[in-house]
Design a protein around this nucleic acid. Structure first.
Lengths: 235, 235
DNA sequence: TGGCGAAATATTATCGATAATATTTCATCG
DNA sequence: CGATGAAATATTATCGATAATATTTCGCCA
């Protein structure tokens, strides 16, 4: 049997997800069912199903009889997500440390790629490898529910949003925060690794807040709205 | 405008959710689209949309061209969920404590109802008020992302499953674990409240594990499969 | 008797059309 | 002019039917 079978609705969902992640679809953009149906040369039905899934991933908002739009990610939600992420990754590190038994080769490999991307100033690559790094730790916890909860934060979108906000002045400096985490995991010290990861999340959050404040004060007179800000970030 | 508008698919979703929670639909049960469509006197389309939402709530499993079933909740997943729940509620307490400013009236009210239900041996009421208690703390964190992550654990189903596993020998004793949490919150000690909540989740997890072990050793010869176990628990 | 494969059956995935609802346009009136 | 509301338009929600796929039944043969 063909288990890789893909329904039309699944294809549509992945394409739309990718577009939201890569910024082709910006926060607030309207998604019209028949338009997308035409694009995929299909009927309305699979498009609607795709929308429902995107909605439960919190990537879009559906309002009955009024349509579907790419969800705004408010500054507040961003901060909240960092907080939750910190707690989940702390737990992940604590669970992962005894399971890894000192074998952090995979995680250290991601770390190497992070540093390389930082040196070259490649923001896209940095974001990707950064996600891989954090995901590797979460997956190492071997707790499916935790992995699922973490994935649902859809941090990928948020990380890219974050890095594009302004050109990160010092990507390499930021990358260095990851090193002691791996060192702690290697010697099986989950508590320390967890604490460091949580602090890392907090420091990312604070950097984000500072930037938003800076950006707001610059454009204070004519554009104080978060909605606009997010739209431009994702583009 | 009528913002309470309910689509057919939403109605179907809520009814099916309720049936899964209250045990009318048991783990493993098949859900046939046209059967449900007939029952609600509607077409297949809204039923399918409802299924998609239930799937993203992890209440059912959909396999392309093979149908939809109520999801099994394995023993392992149960344990994993307790672990994640502990971490999320710990964070919630830490965030909530400074915001509550000593006002724990609502939380203490839930606690009273928990004790009352425990005294009367009313398992349904205990489960309900227990959820209200924990939710009240999570909501008090005022972190939407955290609240959402916690709700998604769909702990309601799991708590009922847990309590019905066998008649809880001492509901009142168990209820007492909640009291020091509220005391800590009242004096603004979020760290302690959080630690206690996490320990509470751990102790629930361990009680659960012991029971599963007991039940397994009893029926060891003819029914060692978790699948069957969960099915009967939900009934 | 038991395994194999083709028809029969059951069910899901998708379609094209229509009903229900929201939004826009625009003529009318004060 | 600006407000108002009815028609026109756009879009979503649902329908009934069909195509695609999986499962079952059952006759056939070794």
């Amino acid at each position: 049997m063909d288990y890789d079978r893909q329904c039309m609705s699944d294809r549509i969902r992945s394409v739309l997800t990718a577009r939201i992640f890569d910024g082709t679809l910006k926060a607030g953009d309207r998604l019209v069912e028949l338009e997308i149906a035409r694009e995929f040369d299909t009927s309305q039905t699979p498009v609607r199903e795709a929308f429902r899934e995107l909605e439960s991933l919190r990537l879009v908002d559906c309002v009955p009889y009024r349509g579907t739009r790419v969800r705004e990610i408010s500054e507040r939600e961003m901060v909240e997500a960092y907080t939750v992420r910190g707690a989940l990754e702390q737990l992940a590190a604590e669970l992962a440390a005894p399971l890894l038994q000192g074998d952090v080769t995979e995680i250290r490999q991601s770390l190497g790629l992070i540093h390389a991307a930082a040196r070259e100033g490649d923001i896209e690559a940095y974001a990707r490898h950064n996600m891989d790094f954090h995901r590797a730790i979460v997956v190492a916890s071997d707790n499916e529910v935790l992995i699922h909860s973490w994935e649902r934060l859809a941090f990928e979108a948020r990380v890219r949003l974050h890095l594009r906000r302004h050109n990160e002045p010092n990507l390499s400096l930021r990358a260095l925060e990851h090193d002691p985490v791996v060192d702690a995991l290697e010697i099986g010290d989950g508590k320390t690794a967890g604490r460091l990861l949580r602090e890392h999340a907090e420091s990312c959050k604070h950097r984000w807040c500072e930037r938003v404040r800076d950006a707001d004060s610059q454009t204070d007179t004519n554009s104080p709205d978060v909605q606009q800000m997010n739209a431009s970030c994702l583009s």
